[in-house]
Design a protein around this nucleic acid. Structure first.
Lengths: 340, 340
DNA sequence: AATAAAAATGTAACCGGTTACATTCGTCAA
DNA sequence: TTGACGAATGTAACCGGTTACATTTTTATT
């Protein structure tokens, strides 16, 4: 019946007209400012309901210079370790009214730089990265834009970036020392791709240094970072004449592959072979046998990263590097070495 | 030595002044518009470099009414099934220049509604949900705001929402039919919490209907949706006098728990017990034995969801419900039933 | 060389909130 | 009753891009 006007989304001015108030008052209600009468507040809220008003995020962001979004750049979401991390990040951010924008790089540093730029373009106010290794371009760009950023999963940043994570060298060191303390002198280490992952490289360095002066034989097996990779590496290891008495996997996901392969070959763990992982994924405590592993505080790390960025943005607190501890979780997949 | 001016971030007007051009031209260069001389473009680009200009995302969003962000609301990132899904969503969105904002609900529909609102507040132009079950408030709100949204993991939306996913009833039906076809007549079904998950309920309904008129005995075991839950349920099942000849897990993660428990109890799979899962996680093909499972096109689903939303936003294409197929992946954890 | 047509560039309004500052209103003391 | 003061509300500029439309410059045509 009535003419159909091309409906324009109602804004503060529409509300102002509808309520007979001014845009300032509308805005004050929107922001829960103190100096508004209860009565007018109700009037505005009622009008919002009726008109079906939704504030425009971009306009607010433009005026306040705050987008309330943090960007995270990770290699992939497909590995549960990153998913768990981001889960924690998201929860902490949500508590503070921030949103999390995600970008994946597929382990490519060049892509990482690109994606980081895109995140800023989308309005991210802070960035979270994995590892300390990044392109020079990224470091320079971070500096010029001045956007706050943190490196995670490492205990030391690069180019002045703060880090929130654990000491990967220590991780390798501690794990192998633990195995050595059980009497193992021939250890195979299974790890994912070295070239795209600085954390892996650091852990391997730790492994190396643990072996020094212990007349221990430590061998390395690089494979793909998944269950299949773990199985394949285990096959290779078990095929050799001189078999190790212990296997250390730089990630629990690889250990799962070893576990499966051991099952297939009827090798008893830990009786015939000790197995140790790293991460402490949610199944690690419930595998058969329960997996001895190095527990990494992934969730805690996510929380701290988020909190640091929020603290910086809200209270201008500078972001400090935080080193989180990692400890051996002794379960039943490892045992003392005994001569056969 | 020169006086320090409170540095204000350079904007298009600063660039205009610096280059002697107008803001319109700057903007044109920014947007790769055709009608700019190569020479002027270079001049502008050079000035941008020197001045260290970064465009303001909010201002652009306000002017264009496009934020280029999609929001996804999922129960958690800690389950790899959601992580894999979002990984695909993110990749597809990135290809189209969109960002992905994530919110987790912890399986709480009330929280889901709240988080969805927050995502819109942060500027999301489209929303992705899990499942078809949502609060009335959410449905109403979606309608009033008019924001495009899709339900995923289901083949039918609610309240007019399009769905992109698979038919969960069929999933239950197909799986159990497969086990029946192998001759199994006593099947235990392990599943996660029913009350917070409509997909689980639908799958169970399918399971039920598969059993009708087959003089088959089907029992249900509800547990937590993780490896531990699977193990516990398996313990319960294996404790009973009359044991099933097959177990069907509504999720591979539960099947992994069963696999471990079977290992602990020295039960041979599939010789003594057939085991079937659902999802096809990345380890499922490499477990011992490789797990027979119902392959769900999670990544494909993510891609389609993202593509649909982008198509709607860019080309005003209405979002159609898409039903993706799911098929039995026959591997070695299931075998024909044979009397003992 | 004159002129039409096309290409490049400029001007200024606009997007929809926020907020400094101005104004109005109500209350209470003198 | 008047004046003062604080609380509530209003006015208008501003955030930093985009873009319709106007203007200038270049190129093509006769």
């Amino acid at each position: 019946m009535g003419k159909r006007y091309p409906e324009k989304k109602p804004g503060v001015r529409t509300l102002a007209k509808a309520t007979g108030l001014s845009v300032a008052t509308i805005s004050r209600v929107l922001n829960k400012s103190q100096s508004v009468t209860g009565e007018t507040r109700d009037r505005v809220l009622k009008a919002m309901q009726e008109i079906g008003y939704t504030p425009n995020a971009s306009a607010r962001a433009l005026a306040t210079k705050r987008t309330r979004t943090i960007g995270a750049v990770v290699p992939t979401l497909a590995h549960s370790i990153f998913a768990r991390f981001l889960n924690a990040v998201e929860q902490e951010l949500a508590l503070n009214g921030y949103g999390l924008v995600i970008a994946t790089t597929g382990h490519d540093l060049q892509v990482e730089e690109q994606r980081a730029r895109e995140l800023l373009d989308l309005g991210a106010e802070g960035l979270i990265f994995s590892g300390a290794d990044h392109t020079d371009g990224l470091f320079k760009w971070l500096k010029t834009t001045g956007i706050p950023a943190v490196c995670t999963s490492v205990s030391q940043g690069r180019a002045g970036l703060p880090a929130i994570g654990y000491n990967n060298t220590n991780i390798g060191l501690t794990s192998v020392r633990y195995l050595l303390s059980l009497g193992h002198r021939h250890i195979s280490v299974i790890h994912g791709p070295k070239d795209t992952n600085d954390r892996t490289r650091m852990r391997l360095a730790g492994v190396q240094s643990a072996g020094i002066g212990k007349d221990a034989k430590i061998e390395f097996f690089e494979t793909s970072l998944d269950v299949e990779g773990g199985s394949r590496a285990a096959q290779d290891i078990l095929k050799t004449r001189a078999q190790p008495s212990a296997i250390f996997c730089l990630s629990d996901i690889l250990a799962l592959g070893v576990l499966f392969e051991a099952g297939r070959q009827n090798i008893a763990i830990p009786e015939q072979l000790s197995l140790m992982g790293c991460d402490d994924l949610d199944w690690s405590a419930h595998s058969a046998p329960p997996l001895t592993t190095l527990k990494l505080p992934t969730a805690r790390m996510g929380q701290e990263a988020a909190r640091s960025l929020v603290d910086f943005l809200e209270h201008a607190r500078t972001i400090k590097t935080i080193e989180l501890g990692a400890s051996v979780l002794e379960r039943q997949s490892t045992a003392h070495f005994r001569k056969k």
